[in-house]
């Protein structure tokens, strides 16, 4: 392969995820005879938003090198959802309080995660896992009382659409563009990628490795918290189990989106492509009338097939 086409491919690993999403969308439409194309897309945009936002956070964490991962996302989502709804207390006037409170929780969770990693020198998997146990208990203790519905204004924002495009999707697409710039065109993003490739070399190149990792874990936790808040708004209230599927999903979208699990090589657009792909996949299987078991098996097979195909291009794990 010539270096230029290799470079071109290196530059756009996210194309595949969009292609796959498109393919599945078309396959579904072929099956339904073209009915509900717009609704499907609109639904996909709405649901993918949540995958995308946690996926971006997870992507930054995974980019900082092998072993870096945030397993506290589900517990964080549950806790943030519960806390946000309680702070808003169904009053439009309190929306700002909820948002600030949830952002605060995100920052705290990120600091906690990083403190465990740094002070105890334990692998992030175990640190964030232990933290998630504690967060989960907090969520149970705090959120066990009656389900508080979101304020009217917030609910409208979380579920509303303009020309079929959910407000939330617009916001998260904007966030993705912003984070894309952060990754490729800022000192912070470059540092993250450098650390992911070779942390020792990064420190010797004058990068403050600890601070960058710290910032990354906080960023990921804040995104997780925002996901929890909006998800609670979207589904009319927080529930304890609402974060569960986001652990696997956040990792899956990162990988399918073309980010290297070994770190140092990532891209933001792929997160969106992969999020759309995941949602469309489930809805396609639903359309085909597959039972829950078959649906799960196929989802699993496709994840494995994708990673096998993706890694044919580039060796992932160091």
């Amino acid at each position: 392969m010539s270096t230029s086409s290799l470079a071109a491919l290196r530059g756009k690993p996210w194309l595949w995820s969009f292609l796959a999403a498109l393919l599945i969308w078309v396959a579904t439409l072929v099956f339904t005879g073209g009915q509900g194309a717009g609704a499907l897309l609109s639904g996909a945009l709405a649901f993918s938003t949540f995958f995308a936002i946690v996926g971006i956070g997870q992507m930054f964490v995974i980019s900082t090198g092998p072993g870096n991962i945030d397993l506290s996302i589900p517990a964080n989502i549950a806790l943030s959802g519960a806390l946000g709804m309680k702070l808003m207390d169904g009053q439009d006037a309190n929306i700002w309080l909820g948002v600030i409170g949830v952002l605060g929780i995100g920052v705290l969770v990120g600091c906690g995660n990083f403190a465990l990693i740094r002070l105890l020198r334990i692998p992030p998997i175990i640190a964030t896992l232990s933290a998630s146990f504690i967060l989960q208990s907090l969520a149970i203790a705090y959120g066990r009382s009656v389900r508080v519905p979101p304020p009217e204004g917030f609910y409208t924002f979380a579920t509303g659409r303009v020309f079929g495009v959910p407000y939330l999707a617009i916001v998260v697409i904007a966030v993705a563009v912003l984070m894309g710039y952060v990754l490729t065109r800022t000192r912070y993003g470059r540092s993250v990628l450098a650390i992911g490739q070779n942390a020792r070399a990064a420190e010797l190149a004058g990068i403050r490795v600890g601070r960058m990792r710290f910032a990354t874990y906080v960023l990921c936790a804040v995104f997780g918290s925002l996901c929890g808040l909006t998800l609670a708004g979207f589904s009319g209230g927080a529930s304890l189990g609402m974060g569960e599927e986001y652990l696997l999903a956040s990792i899956a979208v990162v990988v399918i989106g073309g980010t290297s699990v070994a770190g140092g090589f990532s891209n933001v657009p792929g997160i969106w492509g992969a999020s759309l792909f995941l949602y469309l996949l489930v809805s396609m299987l639903n359309t085909f009338g597959a039972s829950a078991g078959v649906r799960l098996i196929l989802t699993g097979l496709i994840i494995i097939a994708v990673i096998t195909a993706v890694s044919g291009r580039k060796n992932a794990r160091a």
Binding site: I69, L248, I251, A252, V255, V261, A262, L296, I297, T299, G300, L301, I302, I303, I304, I307, T308, S311, G312, N315, A316, R317
Partner: peptide, 16 residues
């Protein structure tokens, strides 16, 4: 194929 085990086994968890 030099795949990341985390992702492959994540897929397997759906299958099981």
């Amino acid at each position: 194929r030099n795949l990341p085990s985390i992702v492959v086994t994540l897929g397997m968890s759906f299958i099981w």
